[in-house]
Amino acid sequence: MIFTDEHIIEAAGKTRVVVRDGRVVEVGSPLIGHCPLAKKFKSPVVSMSQDEIRKNIEERISSFGMCTRKRCVISGDDFVLFGASELLSSALLSKIIDCAVIACDGAGTVIAKNPELIQGIGGKMSGLVKTCPYEEVIKNIESNEGFVPFKEDASIDPFGGVEKALELGFSKIAVTVASSHEAEKIRQKYPETVIVAVHTTGAEREDAVRFTENSDIISACASSFLREIAGPKALVQGGSSVPVYAMTENGKKIVLSKIQKTKMQVLLKGEILPFTSGKDPSPLI
Rank of each mutant, 00 (worst) to 15 (best):
A100D: 14
L168I: 02
C104Y: 07
V110F: 14
K130G: 13
A183I: 03
S180F: 10
V129W: 09
P115E: 08
I118L: 04
A100G: 12
E163T: 11
P191N: 06
A183F: 05
E182L: 07
D153V: 07
A103S: 07
N114E: 11
N144P: 03
Q119L: 15
N140A: 11
P115A: 14
V175K: 03
E204S: 02
D153M: 05
Y134N: 07
K151W: 08
F150I: 14
I156L: 15
T201L: 01
N144G: 04
Q119K: 15
G108H: 04
S180Y: 10
G169L: 07
A183E: 06
F147H: 05
G127V: 15
E206F: 01
F147S: 05
G169N: 09
G127R: 14
V198G: 00
E136P: 06
T109L: 10
D157S: 13
A208E: 05
T200C: 02
T109N: 08
Y190E: 02
H199Q: 01
L166V: 05
V110G: 06
N114R: 10
E135T: 12
Q188K: 13
C99L: 07
E182T: 13
K113I: 04
S126I: 13
G106F: 00
Q119N: 15
P133K: 04
D105Q: 03
K95A: 15
I195E: 01
T176K: 14
Y134L: 08
S179R: 12
I195S: 01
V194C: 02
I173K: 15
V148R: 10
A103R: 02
K95G: 09
G120V: 12
A197W: 00
D207S: 01
I173C: 12
H199A: 00
C104T: 04
A103P: 04
G160A: 13
S179K: 10
T200K: 02
V194H: 00
V162Q: 04
